[in-house]
């Protein structure tokens, strides 16, 4: 009987790796393609961003241009989505509002992250009393929803975009702190961190080299989800008059004004409503999708 080794490594002692394990887990790209949430979410989110960028340089009309000769115009070739009570072009105002909303959302999410993430890392790394203190503080801030903070700020400073951003950011800080802390605690308890410590790797280097890269997906996912919450909050707060005052083109204001004229032109309510919903849906789906993509165990969900 001839003994013909089919694979050389079978007798060299090196472990042959089955093909599947060479390619490893499916790549992020592969998982992205198989997550409907991620695809739809990315498309919508990208669309929102593109609209916001375009509106910086071009809108069909000036969002503030009043034309009393063409108030409450129906959608037409000239005004794709019609005009409002002052004859302003609805599409232009929506586009310009996208920019404002996105700007406020991104600034407040990043601002909250800038405070919340280090706080969470600190709480995870320290433990003990200082860590507990950070946590309790986060709990306390958590008891004040963005709306309340905005109300307080508006009482002091009056309504403005800054008020909205400040309020939303403050409300998000504890969320970031908690997510970062629990993620970091998880990583810190793993053997590779212990192994790194046994090699004399310093605490800050462990945070930078091991913890941050491993919680990055978690944090990015959270940022996306919070962006959708920020869009919601922004719309609600400006609707209540706590944000940028008229005649600014913002979704919340547009709704507020449209509601007054809904007997005359119900469509004016529908446009901003649909826009807000679409934008929130996009970021939400993107966030959910990212979670699927980053965490293969959740793929079945």
């Amino acid at each position: 009987m001839s003994i013909l080794p089919v694979r050389l490594d079978a007798v060299t002692g090196a472990e042959p790796v089955p093909d599947e394990e060479i390619t490893g887990e499916p790549s992020l790209w592969h998982r992205w393609r198989h997550s409907p949430s991620a695809i739809v979410g990315s498309v919508i989110s990208a669309g929102v961003v593109v609209v916001a960028v375009v509106s910086l340089v071009w809108t069909p009309y000036s969002p503030l241009a009043i034309n009393m000769a063409a108030t409450f115009a129906r959608p037409s070739a000239q005004h794709l989505l019609g005009t409002d009570q002052y004859g302003r072009d609805v599409l232009s105002r929506l586009m310009s509002g996208t920019d404002a909303t996105l700007y406020a959302g991104v600034v407040s999410v990043l601002g909250a992250g800038a405070i919340g993430i280090p706080a969470g890392l600190y709480a995870a790394q320290r433990g003990g009393l200082p860590g507990q203190l950070v946590l309790r503080l986060a709990d306390l801030v958590y008891a004040f929803p963005a709306l309340l903070v905005a109300v307080v700020l508006a009482t002091d400073f009056g309504g403005s975009t800054l008020t909205v951003m400040g309020a939303v950011a403050l409300a998000f800080v504890p969320v970031f702190a908690r997510v970062t802390r629990s993620g970091a605690l998880g990583v810190l308890s793993l053997d590779y961190v212990t192994a790194a410590r046994a090699c004399g790797v310093s605490r800050t280097r462990i945070l930078r080299r091991h913890v941050l890269p491993n919680i990055a997906p978690l944090v990015i996912t959270q940022m996306t989800l919070l962006l959708s919450v920020a869009v919601l909050a922004d719309a609600a707060l400006t609707y209540l008059g706590l944000g940028a005052p008229p005649p600014a083109a913002s979704w919340g204001l547009m709704l507020e004004e449209a509601q007054r004229y809904m007997g005359t032109d119900p469509l004016l309510v529908v446009w901003p409503a649909v826009t807000i919903a679409l934008c929130v849906l996009g970021f939400n789906l993107l966030g959910d999708g990212l979670r699927d993509v980053f965490d293969p165990r959740r793929r079945d969900r």
Binding site: P272, A277, N284, L285
Partner: peptide, 23 residues
Amino acid sequence: NQIGIAVPSFVLGILLIVVVGVE
């Protein structure tokens, strides 16, 4: 469900007013 999350309550409120109340 996802759409339900994406529509803020006050927007839904206004839409309800338009449909159920006004129309």
